[in-house]
């Protein structure tokens, strides 16, 4: 039996937040552009380094840096789609390979500009919160609480936008049936751009939080990419809510591995990949049964 350890759950929530933010955009693009975007992880790194430059080099407050990082992520995502992916008349596999090229270009730019050393945000907040230590018996710092809180706000905002705004309805319609959406008068090209904006901004936020939680490295995004794919495939490609659920499960599994007997902790990422491969084999439409609520 798995012992319940609140510390592992707290760690899991932090990691899940990062995975959720990364996988939403990956899932949206996979659905609408019909290819797995291998540059999505490196887009997270772009956001993380963007925030680092705004905060560290330009000296703006950290929240401003986070928002700027998200804007950078959105702009880079939209530009990449316009310049590289949209003009290509190619199948999913060709686009996949082109997206690897895009990923390498992002990473090359980051390495050239920021070097290959690991860096960190100079914002403090790394000391455990005493109150949490006393009441819950867990070591959690301000950074971790902020990551979870901001992720909840972002996910809540996305939910509200999808359900209660005109753009959200158009996005859901386009995702469900692009041709029908187009003949119904929805400007699907704008909706697609909106999806890249949302995906890019959330990826950038996830990248900043990953950098906040661990370290900022040019390879940080690529190293987490397959975990994102695991979340997307678990949740069902194209489903925003599926990506949220998949991200939560994969993130939790990743951090809860110490509580699982038999499996050594160092294989926690491997477990995520095994889950992903099993889902691909057994239920490729994901646990949610495909995009029903996108």
């Amino acid at each position: 039996m798995v012992d319940f350890d609140p510390q592992l759950v707290a760690d899991g929530l932090v990691y899940s937040s990062i995975i959720v933010l990364g996988s939403i955009g990956l899932s949206l693009v996979y659905d609408i552009a019909d290819f797995p975007n291998f540059a999505h992880g490196d887009l997270m790194a772009v956001g993380a380094f963007g925030a680092l430059a705004v905060h560290g080099s330009l000296g703006f407050p950290f929240p401003v840096a986070v928002v700027t990082g998200m804007v950078i992520g959105a702009v880079v995502a939209v530009l990449t789609n316009r310049v590289v992916f949209e003009p290509m008349d190619a199948g999913p596999l060709e686009l996949l390979i082109a997206s690897i090229g895009v990923a390498l270009i992002y990473r090359a730019a980051l390495m050239q500009r920021f070097g290959t050393e690991s860096q960190s945000y100079d914002v403090g907040g790394q000391a455990p919160i005493d109150a949490a230590q006393e009441t819950l018996g867990i070591a959690i710092n301000v950074r971790a609480v902020a990551i979870i809180a901001v992720t909840l706000v972002l996910v809540g905002a996305l939910h509200a936008m999808l359900q209660y705004t005109s753009l959200g309805r158009q996005m859901r319609a386009t995702s469900a049936n692009p041709s029908l959406a187009r003949v119904s008068g929805i400007r699907t090209d704008r909706v697609v751009t909106a999806m890249w904006v949302i995906g890019g901004a959330l990826a950038a936020a996830g990248g900043v939080f990953l950098g906040l939680h661990t370290l900022i490295r040019p390879r940080m995004g690529f190293d987490i990419l397959l975990v994102l794919f695991a979340a997307v495939i678990l949740g069902g490609i194209g489903s925003v809510y599926g990506a949220m659920a998949g991200g939560l499960v994969i993130g939790m599994v990743h951090e809860l591995t110490p509580a699982i007997p038999v499996v050594p902790t160092r294989y926690n990422t491997a477990i995520a990949f095994v889950i992903m491969i099993l889902i691909l084999l057994v239920q490729p439409s994901g646990i949610a049964g495909g995009k029903t609520s996108a």
């Binding site: 590289v84 003009p87 290509m88 190619a90 060709e94 686009l95 390979i97 082109a98 690897i100 090229g101 895009v102 990923a103 390498l104 270009i105 990473r107 090359a108 730019a109 390495m111 050239q112 070097g115 290959t116």
Partner: peptide
């Protein structure tokens, strides 16, 4: 000033996109 690793990744990336395109 040029980072060789970065230059290599950049050239490979551009090459990939051009071939596919």
């Amino acid at each position: 000033e040029i980072n060789v690793g970065a230059l290599r990744l950049f050239l490979v990336g551009v090459l990939v996109i051009l071939i596919v395109r």
